[in-house]
Simulated scan of single mutants.
Amino acid sequence: MTKLHSDFSIEEFNQRGAEYLPGYLGIEITAVSQGTLSSRMSIRKLHFAPNDFLHAASIVALADTSCGYATYAHLPEGAASFTTIELKSNHLGTVREGGIACIATAQHLGRNTQVWDAVVTDESNARKIALFRCTQMILWPNS
């Protein structure tokens, strides 16, 4: 099983995404440990669809970012990077204000693939609003 790299910090993850989609959306990594990563996002108008409900893509962005950063922190020794090759989400509810939280948990940490599950909740009451699963392909340097 791939182990968490000890040289990654929460601050590094948050700085890494600052000028990219995670930074624009306000995604914050809050904790990382072996096989898990936690994050959050304060809800703003930009996270909503024109029907005034939380846009599914905002929820997916939080979950996918969390699983992606978790994969990065758990890359096998010598791997160059990773890419998402499959994702699925089930949306169970929405929020209109406050924030949402995400916990990504490793299901498989292999040499060529990793599978991560994420649960997105309403920060105010821990009610589940989405379930997410993704498969990451590990990328190796060209030899």
Rank of each mutant, 00 (worst) to 15 (best):
T83R: 05
R96M: 15
L139K: 10
E28Y: 01
A61E: 04
Q107H: 12
E86C: 02
M41Y: 00
G17E: 10
N90R: 12
A126V: 02
H55F: 13
T71Y: 13
F82C: 05
A57G: 13
F53T: 13
K3I: 11
L54G: 03
N90G: 08
N51T: 04
C102R: 00
I59D: 02
K3C: 11
F132A: 04
L87Y: 14
R44Y: 11
S81D: 12
L109Q: 07
G98A: 01
K88C: 03
A104G: 05
S81M: 10
W140A: 03
E28K: 00
R44T: 15
G99S: 04
A61L: 07
Q34P: 04
G23F: 06
E19M: 08
F53M: 15
I29F: 12
S39Y: 03
A49I: 06
I100M: 07
S66A: 04
T121H: 12
T36E: 15
H47M: 07
T36W: 09
T30L: 00
T121I: 11
I129Q: 08
T84D: 13
I29Y: 04
V32D: 10
F132I: 00
A101T: 06
S33G: 12
F132C: 07
K45E: 15
I59Y: 11
Q15P: 03
Y24K: 10
S81A: 14
Q34F: 08
A73H: 09
A118I: 02
K3S: 11
A104Y: 06
A101Y: 04
A18F: 05
I29P: 01
S89Y: 05
T30S: 00
S6Q: 12
C134Y: 11
I43V: 10
D52N: 11
Y24I: 13
L131R: 09
R111T: 05
Q114M: 13
W116S: 09
E86A: 14
N142I: 11
M41L: 01
A56P: 02
N51F: 07
R96I: 15
S42T: 12
P50K: 05
H108M: 12
I103R: 11
P141K: 10
T71F: 14
Q136T: 08
S89F: 09
H108F: 13
G17V: 07
N90K: 12
Q15I: 13
C134D: 14
S9K: 10
P76A: 15
Q34L: 03
Y69W: 15
S58H: 02
T83I: 09
G93Y: 08
N112T: 14
A126T: 09
E123D: 00
A79C: 09
G98L: 01
L92N: 05
T105P: 03
A130I: 06
